[in-house]
Each structure stands twice: as structure tokens, then as C-alpha cells.
């Protein structure tokens, strides 16, 4: 008998550091097997919201619903561990190994399976600190998968990656999403990442309640323009198979009126 998978939720949640509220009255819910993208400008509390969901920080007010253990993929900014990738990933088994234990062959099998899942088996013996940014990101996801948690929480997984690595990351996240075995939450600065790999999006608006809903309805020009304070335009362009694919782009400065 499998225990009914838990959903993840924040209910009227607020976080305060000193006298400053990072956010208040935040509602958020992700059903088991769904993927939620969290969007918002810098300083709107995306990372703090993730930390609250992860239980790193107690909520100042409101309620949190989450399983005991969540797979966490930190931002790439943290100092990389000097250990070999495989040894780094097996640390995901920490909770099962216990305080005085050592990882067993079974733990290594789980670590190897996770490394295989993210497609970097050829790097298993390499020192983690010597991997490229994209490879490290995959390694951190493998470690989160190795925990055995069915939840994956990623803090701006794409922001330090080049376009090719962003593509590989989104492909993996979308793959995990479509398998419907894991609940996934990630923060991002790019609305197109939410369109590519999420079912729902949460927009952390300024001075009003956060908006949430399915990506294709909530990610409208009007909402995103309001969210970022910069004009946004939505288009549908044909993808490789000729299917209509929505894209959202900001109307930044351009070289208009320049003479040749």
C-alpha cells in the first residue's frame, strides 16, 4: 500500500525579516505529480518562499503543508563540494544512512540510477568542483533524486546556464513532469521556461495577491507586463514539428531609427 502522496501548499503564508515583510498572504498549492513555476522580479521573495516550503525558515504567519523530506536543488552560487560526483550524489542518501552509518552498495545503486537519469554517467568519477556549470546543475538534481523524495524544489535552476544547458535542463524537467511521478517546484526569471516545463505558474505581484493558474492562461501579456513593469508581447511561432508554440518576449530597447 502506497501512502497517499501529499500535496504541497502554503496557506495565507507570510515571512518577515526584522520589521520588513518579504511577502504576506501567499497562497500556493501543487498537487502531487504537478509542476509549478514561480515567477517574480528580484527581491519579491521567490527564494524566501522556496525556503519556507522547504522548511528551512519557519513561517512568520500562515500554514505550510509538505512532506518531511523534499529534494532540494540549490542555486549554483554555493561553493561546489570537492568530492567526486558519485560521492556527492550518494550524500543524497544521508537520511537513510543515519548519523553513524556509511552508505551501502544499495545507496550507491540509487546514486548511480540518479546519475543515469540526468544523463551524466560518463562524469561519475570526476571531481564535482571541476565540472562545468551545466554538469554541476545536473549533478545537484541527481543528488536530489537520490534522496528518494518525490518532490523536487529547484532554486533558479537555469539562471547560471548558457542557452544549450538551459535547453538540456528544461528537457529534463519537462521529462520528469510528464512522468507524473514527482511534484516539482522551480523559480525562474524567464517566462518561457515556465511555458516549457511547468503545468502551473505563480506570479508574485507587487502590492497585490499573487496570481496563479495554468501556464497558458495565467502567463498573459497583461499579467507579465504588470509583474515585471516592462512591456511584454506574446506570440505563437511554429516549433520543429510545425505546431504553434507560445513565446513571451519583453519589449526592450532597440536600435530603432539608426541610420546606416
Amino acid at each position: 500500500m502506497k501512502i497517499t502522496p501529499m500535496k504541497i501548499a502554503l496557506n495565507r503564508a507570510g515571512m518577515r525579516f526584522g520589521s520588513r515583510w518579504i511577502f504576506r498572504g501567499l497562497d500556493l498549492a501543487v498537487e502531487h505529480g504537478a509542476t509549478l513555476a514561480i515567477l517574480g522580479p528580484n527581491g519579491r521573495g521567490k527564494t524566501t518562499a522556496l525556503h519556507a516550503i522547504l522548511g528551512f525558515l519557519p513561517l512568520t504567519e500562515g500554514e505550510r503543508t509538505a512532506p518531511n523530506r523534499l529534494g532540494y536543488v540549490p542555486q549554483l552560487l554555493t561553493i561546489p563540494a570537492p568530492h567526486a560526483l558519485r560521492e556527492m550524489v550518494v550524500m543524497g542518501r544521508c537520511a537513510r544512512v543515519g548519523l553513524f552509518g556509511q552508505p551501502s552498495p544499495e545507496d550507491y545503486r540509487a546514486a548511480d540510477a540518479a546519475i543515469e537519469r540526468v544523463g551524466i554517467r560518463h562524469l561519475a568519477g570526476e571531481p564535482f568542483a571541476r565540472l562545468s556549470g551545466g554538469e554541476r546543475q545536473m549533478g545537484l538534481i541527481a543528488r536530489a533524486l537520490a534522496t528518494g523524495s518525490d518532490v523536487l524544489v529547484l532554486d533558479e535552476p537555469a539562471s547560471a546556464l548558457d542557452l544549450g544547458n538551459q535547453g538540456r535542463l528544461l528537457y529534463l524537467l519537462n521529462d520528469l513532469r510528464q512522468a507524473r511521478e514527482m511534484t516539482i517546484l522551480f523559480t525562474t526569471h524567464d517566462p518561457n521556461h515556465a511555458l516549457a516545463a511547468a503545468d502551473d505558474a505563480l506570479l508574485m505581484m507587487k502590492n497585490e495577491a499573487a496570481l496563479s493558474g495554468p501556464v497558458d492562461t495565467i502567463m498573459s501579456e497583461a499579467n507579465l507586463t504588470r509583474l515585471y513593469g516592462v512591456a511584454m508581447r506574446q506570440f505563437a511561432i511554429p516549433d520543429q514539428q510545425g505546431q504553434a508554440m507560445p513565446v513571451i518576449v519583453p519589449m526592450h530597447a532597440r536600435h530603432s531609427g539608426e541610420k546606416r
Binding site: H51, L54, F56, R69, L70, G71, Y72, P74, T78, I79, A81, H83, E87, M91, G92, C94, A95, R96, R143, A144, T147
Partner: peptide
């Protein structure tokens, strides 16, 4: 080994 990681990472791994 795990305690030598970032504190939040260590916590998320069950330490």
C-alpha cells in the same frame, strides 16, 4: 562530509 556542505543543503539531505 554532509556537514561540510552549505547548511541548507545539509538540512535538505536530512542532516
Amino acid at each position: 562530509n554532509i556537514l561540510s556542505l552549505d547548511e541548507n543543503e545539509a538540512r535538505s539531505l536530512g542532516a
